[in-house]
Structures are given as structure tokens and as C-alpha cells.
């Protein structure tokens, strides 16, 4: 069922990573993502993996849970690998069959890219595993607060994001119910060619859209009733405040970046 997707859903646990300020985690994730593109040799993966695995270890999120989340993107991963293997050209092919030629360079690039992509997804999902959507949007709102000077509606965008995150599971469940209601009337979503299948989606999408509009209206009213009037004059139940551990975490990020730059200079 679609509801079983675990990718990126908050995993409640009481760990140092969970307790870090979301801003530290957002910046840390960015630093980490950028760092993955800093080097071209396999050596670079040593510090990145040390960094990632220590974070996973500290977060107390079970490794199994993280691997399960990766399953959802296996197709994407395979696709990238195959593209890299087939389309990278080198000098001496290892293998030839009709128009397909596989070079050692292709295998190397595929391996390199595969590891990079896996680390990339694991790293960013670790952030969502350890940060509640509210913290995440709060963090983003604060980090991007300076943009308010340029009339960017930072608070509103953050609020929209957090509502979207709140309603994703609700809508998935609703989709499930609608699908069943139509299947009960003999609808078939599995047979036929791509056009027939696309057409078969109409009986799901129409009720889903109508109910979503209704939901949106209801929700707007519920927010008004609770005196929501934009970001102005709002206080916070959980205001973001840096603590000692957050500065240490920033320090660790700097050290990590420095280590990677050293790898890049000396090992390529």
C-alpha cells in the first residue's frame, strides 16, 4: 500500500541529533550535500562516510529503517547506474554486444555515482528522520528570515510547507479509500496500455481534487477561527534558540569540511 512509504518520515527518538537546532541540521545537510561534489576520487568517500555513519549512529535511528527508506528510490538508483555504464565512453571496451559497449571507465563512474547518490539520499533523509516537519519549517523560516527585507513572504511559505507535510498522509489515506470505492464498482487500474491507465485515473482524481478543495476551505476557516493572521505579532511555543551543543555541531561541520578539502588537495 502507498501508506507504507517510510522515506523521510519523522522517526521519534531522543538523541543528540534529534535535539540539535533544526538550523544546524539544515546547514549541516547543505554542507554535506555540497561536500559530496567536492572530490573526484574514491578517497573522498572516507571522510564523508565517517561523517554520515557517525551521525546515523548518534541519531539512534536503526540502520534497517534507513535502508528500508532507500528501497523507494531503488529504481532511480538502478536507472542512474545503467545510464552511466552504457553511456560512458572509454578507450578499451570490456564487453561488446551489438551497439552496447561497456568500458572500465563506465563501471568506475557508475560505482562512483551510485555511492554518491546513495550517500546523498541517506544524508538528506537522515535530516527528515530526526527533525519534525514543524522544526524543519521553523528552521527554514529563521534561516531565510533576511529575505523578508526583499518582500519574500518567508513565514507564509514556511506555513504552507508545514501544512502540506501535515496533509500528505491524510491525502494518501484518502486516495486509498477512493481507489477501493471505484474498484468496488469494477474499475481496473492495472490493465491496459498507458493511455487506458491514465484514463482510469480520472475516477480517482476527480473525487480527490474535490475533497482537497473542500479540505482547503475547511482548513482556512479553522485557521481563521484560531485567530491566524499571518506572521505578524505571532509568538512561538517552541522558539529556536542556539545552545552549546549547536555551536559544537557547527564546529564539527567546519572540521569535516576542512578534512575534505585536505583530501581533495592531496588525493584528488
Amino acid at each position: 500500500m502507498i501508506r507504507d512509504i517510510t522515506l523521510g518520515q519523522y522517526y521519534p527518538e531522543n538523541s543528540i541529533i534529534h535535539r540539535l537546532d533544526p538550523r544546524v541540521k539544515i546547514v549541516g545537510t547543505l554542507v554535506y550535500l555540497v561536500s559530496l561534489f567536492l572530490f573526484k576520487s574514491f578517497w573522498g568517500y572516507i571522510p564523508t562516510m565517517i561523517f554520515l555513519f557517525s551521525c546515523i549512529h548518534l541519531s539512534k535511528v536503526p540502520f534497517k529503517h534507513i535502508v528500508k527508506g532507500l528501497k523507494a528510490v531503488v529504481m532511480l538508483l538502478m536507472f542512474t547506474l545503467i545510464c552511466n555504464i552504457i553511456f560512458t565512453r572509454g578507450e578499451v571496451p570490456l564487453f561488446e554486444w551489438k551497439f552496447i559497449r561497456i568500458y572500465p571507465e563506465g563501471l568506475r563512474t557508475a560505482g562512483f555515482m551510485g555511492i554518491r547518490l546513495t550517500l546523498l539520499i541517506t544524508g538528506s533523509s537522515l535530516m527528515t528522520f530526526t527533525t519534525t516537519p514543524t522544526q524543519l519549517t521553523d528552521g527554514l523560516e529563521r534561516l531565510f528570515a533576511p529575505l523578508k527585507l526583499f518582500k519574500v513572504p518567508v513565514h507564509e511559505v514556511a506555513m504552507m510547507m508545514s501544512i502540506a507535510l501535515r496533509f500528505i498522509p491524510v491525502l494518501l489515506e484518502e486516495t486509498d479509500k477512493i481507489m477501493k470505492a471505484q474498484q468496488a464498482r469494477g474499475a481496473d487500474f492495472e490493465e491496459g496500455n498507458i493511455f487506458q491507465r491514465a484514463k482510469a485515473m480520472v475516477p480517482i482524481l476527480v473525487p480527490l481534487f474535490i475533497s482537497s478543495f473542500r479540505r482547503a476551505g475547511d482548513l482556512a476557516m479553522a485557521m481563521e477561527v484560531r485567530c491566524y493572521h499571518g506572521g505578524e505579532g505571532r509568538t512561538r511555543m517552541k522558539p529556536l534558540k542556539y545552545k552549546g551543543r549547536d555551536f559544537i555541531a557547527y564546529g564539527v561541520q567546519l572540521l569535516y569540511l576542512a578534512a575534505l578539502i585536505l583530501v581533495r588537495i592531496f588525493l584528488g
Binding site: 519523522y10 519534525t132 508545514s162 507535510l165 475547511d218 485567530c227 493572521h229 505571532r234 511555543m237
Partner: peptide, 26 residues
């Protein structure tokens, strides 16, 4: 509709939503 009036993702944060809008101290 119970699903369409809970705005935030954690129970206590949602309950705090109204007072936040009213500018009540943390």
C-alpha cells in the same frame, strides 16, 4: 471534520497554534 481543523503535525504544537497567533508569551 476532525481531519480538517488540526493544522500542525504534533498534538501539543497544534494546541499552541491559537495562543501563538494571539501573541501569548512562550
Amino acid at each position: 471534520n476532525p481531519d480538517n481543523q488540526i493544522i500542525l503535525t504534533v498534538v501539543e504544537e497544534d494546541v499552541g497554534f491559537g495562543p501563538e497567533n494571539l501573541g501569548v508569551p512562550t
